[in-house]
Computed example of a mutant assay.
Amino acid sequence: MQSGQLISKRATEVLEAMDLSGSDTVHLLMFRIAEERRIPFAVKAPNSTTPNVIAHLEDNSANSLNSIDA
Rank of each mutant, 00 (worst) to 15 (best):
R32N: 08
P40V: 02
I33W: 11
M18K: 15
M30C: 10
A11D: 04
F31Y: 14
A45N: 05
L29S: 01
L15Q: 05
T12E: 09
G22Q: 03
D19Q: 13
F31H: 13
H27S: 08
P40F: 02
M18N: 14
E36W: 06
L29F: 06
A42H: 07
R37M: 14
L20N: 00
F31I: 13
R38H: 12
L20R: 01
M18C: 15
L20W: 01
E35W: 05
A42E: 08
T25G: 00
P40D: 02
V14R: 09
H27V: 06
R10T: 11
V43C: 09
E36K: 08
T12N: 14
K44S: 12
P40H: 01
I39A: 03
L15R: 04
G22W: 00
A11N: 06
S23D: 05
D19I: 06
S21G: 10
L15T: 03
D19C: 11
L28E: 04
T25K: 00
E35Q: 14
A42W: 04
D19L: 10
R37H: 14
E35F: 10
I33K: 13
D24F: 01
P46F: 06
T25C: 01
P40M: 02
R32D: 05
D19N: 15
P46K: 03
K44A: 11
R10K: 14
M30N: 07
M18D: 12
P40N: 02
V26P: 04
A17T: 09
L28D: 04
R32K: 12
I39H: 03
F41R: 03
A42K: 10
T12V: 12
E13G: 15
K44F: 10
V26R: 13
R32Y: 09
S23A: 14
L20D: 00
A34V: 07
E36Q: 10
R10I: 13
E36R: 09
